Computed example of a mutant assay.
Amino acid sequence: MVAPAILYVLLLVGLPFLLAVYYSVSAYTIYDPSWHFVGLSNFRQIVSNPVFQDTLANTFLFTFGSQFLGLVLGKFGALLLMRPFPGRTIVRALIILPWAVPIALATVAWEWMFDSLYSVINWTLISLGIITRSEAPNWLGNPHLAMLCVIVVNAWRFFPFAIVIFLAGMTSIPQDVIDAATVDGAGFWRRNYQIVLPMIMPIVAVGLIFGIVFTFTDLSVVFLLTNGGPVGATSVLGFEGFQVGIVSGDVSHGAAISLFMLPVLFFVVVGMLRFIRRREI
């Protein structure tokens, strides 16, 4: 019964991983397909490259910035959806749309929202008198604003998943615990951040592991929204590996850049799992 799943993982995950290792220790390019063993020289070269160092910093900022924002939105969204109101069932069903909508379609919509001429965000701010037309920001043309844009779009993708995680954890807490805390004088904030949040932290940590792994290895938002620009300000490891290995044809260095994510993710996941184990004990 498990054999099809194992075969699927081996063919679509294990084989590409072994090929990446094979190419990363060689001088293989599409212009010179002969295989020559070069050891770890590809990794030393990419680590010493200032472009790669900036890309690595962008990846951490993009990953943890979007995860933090997504968790904050997910927490408050779950608190709102826990309260009874007319149409709550419909809202709970619709809230999953950012997670279900194809990323290409969603990113194109966000690209129009951030457009330098037709941005609905800028026109709204101008209509409200907050800024003038000459002060309207060029969202995707400014390096700092462009990074903020890709973080916001990825957080928008992630926060429905965060809402589901928080709802699952909060609904599993016995009502007696909440009632006892209320009787003891705990207010709304104290109940949520000293009682509810510590109790659901293992569930949230599992969801955060998935979010970090998927975001750290993702290139779709950056590729579709900014294409790594302006001037590499939003380039992340997945996008850089694609550009170097596929677009430029330097397969060996592209594979080395992609594999660089593996030890980072390994330590992050191990640290999160150890945290979960301590919380459960």
Results as ranks from 00 to 15, higher is better:
T59M: 10
R88Y: 02
F60N: 05
V204H: 09
F85M: 07
G185V: 10
A186V: 04
L197F: 12
L117F: 09
I96G: 05
L80N: 04
F60A: 15
I151E: 05
G70W: 02
A100L: 15
T63P: 08
E111K: 14
I165T: 15
I126V: 13
V108E: 06
W110Q: 06
T182N: 12
I121S: 00
V150D: 05
F85L: 07
A109P: 00
N122W: 02
A136Y: 04
A181I: 07
I121R: 02
L117N: 13
I178P: 00
W156E: 05
F85D: 08
L197M: 14
P198S: 06
W189R: 13
I200V: 15
P102R: 06
I203L: 12
S127Q: 07
R191Y: 01
N192E: 15
I195W: 04
T132K: 14
D179M: 11
V72G: 04
S119D: 05
M113A: 12
R191C: 09
G77I: 10
R190I: 01
L80K: 01
F64T: 04
I121E: 03
V108M: 12
L105G: 01
L81R: 07
F68T: 15
D184C: 11
L125H: 04
K75G: 12
F159H: 06
W112R: 13
V108F: 14
F114D: 10
G141W: 08
V91C: 07
I96R: 05
A104T: 15
L97A: 15
D179Y: 10
R190G: 00
N154W: 00
P84S: 14
I163H: 04
L128S: 04
P102A: 09
M170G: 09
Q194S: 14
I173T: 07
R83G: 00
M199W: 01
G65F: 05
